[in-house]
Design a protein around this nucleic acid. Structure first.
Lengths: 238, 238
DNA sequence: TAGTGGTCTAGACCACTAA
DNA sequence: TAGTGGTCTAGACCACTAC
């Protein structure tokens, strides 16, 4: 592990575990250099990462301070899986039911997500997420089979991402999300407990590997009253 | 202007204006050093910024490449004002109507957004955004008066952000957004052209200055069929 | 004035990619 | 093997903040 990663992880953990409290001042760059026996640039690299990930902010002439970002309910910063979210927010009761798991010939895979007109074999996974006894999320995932050769019901009902990262060694790079509202379909009404709602919140996601290759499209359809998306935006990062 | 900013802006502009095309390879760090007479670290700082802002990606042993991120309709990356968005997406016909502009004593300012129980004087600005003849967005903005002393109808109907940044010299740091769906209120139905929809997409935003001080809360209520939110998420930025 | 973070440099070594 | 980006160092000067 790189030296700057070690320091980054140390401070990140200190913040998440509450050893460093919101508003608290971090040691100065000089002090961190001495304490961890690092050059200033390496210390600065760690701190820069903490800044871009919204853990701290730096003020010229004053120091580095832990951000106070606990005004919202849960800390979803972008890309996170259902299972990770469940763990972070401490959901007591949740489960996943696999509705369909099959291979397709790019039929229903959204055309705009395809790089070209090539024919691909594609895994289609349809799952329903239940939280506290209510079916609230309908997930439709599509993976290229040349990237994800095998997929079982057991993997799907656990965490696909965990499998992809730990077993297949795939490295997720980034994702584009699009959030829209749509009229509920007959399928939505069948698979979700929508009560009297006639709309759903739809999150379309394209997931890319670190090498830039697109490998997954996901459509996540949520009960409107149980949907919440959190985002932290930084204006003009430079 | 810092040297790394100069190079960053140069390349960013080249990408946005199409002189550097998606997938194209940038000059190597060595070449950029020579061409712009910079040290390697300075070149790397520029490129790092382009990476975190999702303009390019770097591949060890190969080079830096322009990202292909044009699969979505418009490039909203986080924090952007209505006027900026209108300019970027080339909306032909839009206007803003100021419904209410007044000073309040923190009454309707959402309590969870307040730092303490202090009493503040707060500007309340309620505006309706019309696009192509349809009233699609209801914006409710709240500003602390000690940060924004004066606000006129003219400023409000133009761009408040432009005024804050250029005239008051305020520096926006970052914002937290929360997106939820809500049942339409009587006010929504009165001020928006909702047709037969009975829900709205609600974006709650807390805006902080670079010094970390919270200074604005905004609630933006959208017609569901005209709402779209785009987000780019990077997994494990380190 | 002392201490802080911001910028910039020159040089070194490593790991990965491609021919 | 040559070229690329990734990490790390030591030292310099600057701008801002606080006292």
């Amino acid at each position: 592990m790189a030296k700057y990663s070690v320091l980054y992880n140390k401070i990140q953990k200190d913040i998440e575990d509450g050893r460093l409290k919101p508003g608290e001042q971090l040691p100065s760059e000089k002090e961190l250099m001495d304490e961890y026996d690092l050059s200033r640039d390496t210390v600065r690299k760690s701190l820069s990462l903490l800044v871009t990930n919204n853990y701290i902010r730096k003020i010229k002439g004053k120091g580095s301070f832990v951000l106070e970002m606990n005004k919202f309910d849960f800390p979803v910063a972008g890309l996170i899986s259902f299972k990770e979210m469940a763990a972070k927010t401490g959901m007591t009761s949740y489960s996943t039911e696999v509705i369909r798991l099959q291979i397709q010939k790019s039929a229903t895979f959204p055309t705009k997500a395809l790089d070209a007109q090539e024919i691909h074999s594609i895994w289609e996974v349809i799952r329903v997420r239940t939280i506290n006894g209510r079916r609230v999320i309908l997930d439709k995932d599509y993976f290229y089979q040349d990237v994800v050769p095998e997929l079982t019901e057991e993997i799907s009902s656990n965490s696909i991402y965990e499998y992809l990262e730990q077993n297949l060694g795939l490295k997720i790079g980034f994702a584009q999300k699009e959030i829209v509202m749509e009229k509920a379909t007959a399928e939505d009404r069948l698979l979700l407990d929508l009560y009297d709602y006639d709309m759903v919140a739809v999150v379309n996601t394209l997931v890319y590997l670190v090498n830039g290759k697109l490998f997954q499209f996901t459509q996540s359809r949520h009960c409107p009253d149980k949907f919440k998306f959190i985002d932290v935006a930084r204006r003009n990062t430079p």
